[in-house]
């Protein structure tokens, strides 16, 4: 089922995320996905996150689909040129994958193969454009297709970016290029998020707020210093540092953030980063 159908029905959409392993032992990954069955509308499968070579997103999306779970195929421009990207989109379609999240991708030198050739033949906007063209029955070279795919295309945005102007400009371009929904970078400040949502009202596109589970005060400080567009306010860090039970506190904070921002947007995307088994508890605490 496409995420766009969920947005159209007016339901608050919920997605989470799993990251394929480096290697071929996928039992643990599939167990994580099983825990999310019936709790989320779709599961993002990351495409070699942080530029670390791993098992591919397409294969895992297919396995999820086989098991009756709805995947969101994340596809980045880092490793493939326009021929491979378009081909993978077609492959995804014939494997039954309908939700695609188009991203630029982290830079190569940040991962475990820093000497690899960075591709970036397309960017996220031209990738969305390419996918839209495929849906219209032609590829980027304007050649006709035998049968068109039909996707629900997603993109990402960073509401906490500084400066925010260029982010919104690019978001507008993504909508024009065919993005039907957005998932955001982690948000910890509902007030800032509300500002952002007011600035993009004219785009009229569903936005799923990103929630990253805080694992510790140290993680929050690390993200503040090193992760672009993520700012954890000091009171939250202190709350985390003073908590006797970190896990309980983390779930409580995530649930509180979701409750506060639920009315501002059309869905939530929970990134657990290793704590996937905690996601159902977060959803329960948030009343979803």
């Amino acid at each position: 089922m496409k995420l766009s159908e969920i947005f159209a029905s007016g339901k608050f959409a919920v997605t989470s995320e799993i990251g394929p392993p480096k290697g071929v032992n996928i039992e643990a990954l599939l167990e994580q996905a099983e825990l999310l069955r019936g709790k989320v509308d779709a599961i993002n499968v990351t495409d070699q996150q942080s530029s670390v070579m791993r098992l591919g997103s397409l294969a895992i999306c297919h396995l999820l689909k086989e098991r009756g779970l709805e995947p969101v195929f994340q596809i980045t421009c880092r490793d493939r040129n326009r021929i491979a990207l378009q081909s993978d989109l077609l492959s995804a379609y014939v494997l039954g994958i309908r939700n695609v999240l188009c991203l630029t991708g982290d830079y190569v030198s940040l991962g475990d193969h820093p000497g690899a050739k960075p591709v970036f033949d397309l960017d996220s906007v031209s990738l969305l454009h390419a996918a839209s063209e495929l849906q219209q029955g032609r590829d980027l070279a304007k050649q006709a297709l035998k049968g068109n795919p039909d996707f629900c295309l997603g993109a990402v945005v960073t509401p906490g970016a500084n400066p925010l102007g260029p982010q919104i400009m690019k978001m507008e371009k993504k909508v024009k290029a065919g993005a039907q929904f957005f998932q955001t970078q982690a948000v910890y400040d509902p007030r800032k998020f509300e500002d952002f949502m007011n600035q993009i009202k004219h785009l009229n596109v569903p936005v799923m707020v990103g929630i990253v589970l805080l694992k510790s005060a140290g993680m929050a400080r690390f993200m503040n210093a090193n992760v672009a567009g993520v700012h954890v306010p000091e009171p939250l860090i202190e709350e985390m540092a003073d908590a006797p039970d970190r896990v309980e506190k983390s779930i409580e904070i995530a649930a509180r953030l979701i409750k506060e921002m639920k009315d501002m947007c059309q869905g939530v995307h929970i990134m657990a980063i290793g704590w996937e088994e905690k996601v159902p508890a977060v959803l329960e605490a948030a009343g979803l």
Binding site: Y107, P118, D123, V125, K173
Partner: peptide, 17 residues
């Protein structure tokens, strides 16, 4: 990343990731 349509999400306060 040869971005021709806008910044990627990796810029930190105007600096490159």
């Amino acid at each position: 990343k040869s971005q021709r349509n806008g910044p990627c999400g990796g810029a930190m306060d105007g600096h490159c990731e």
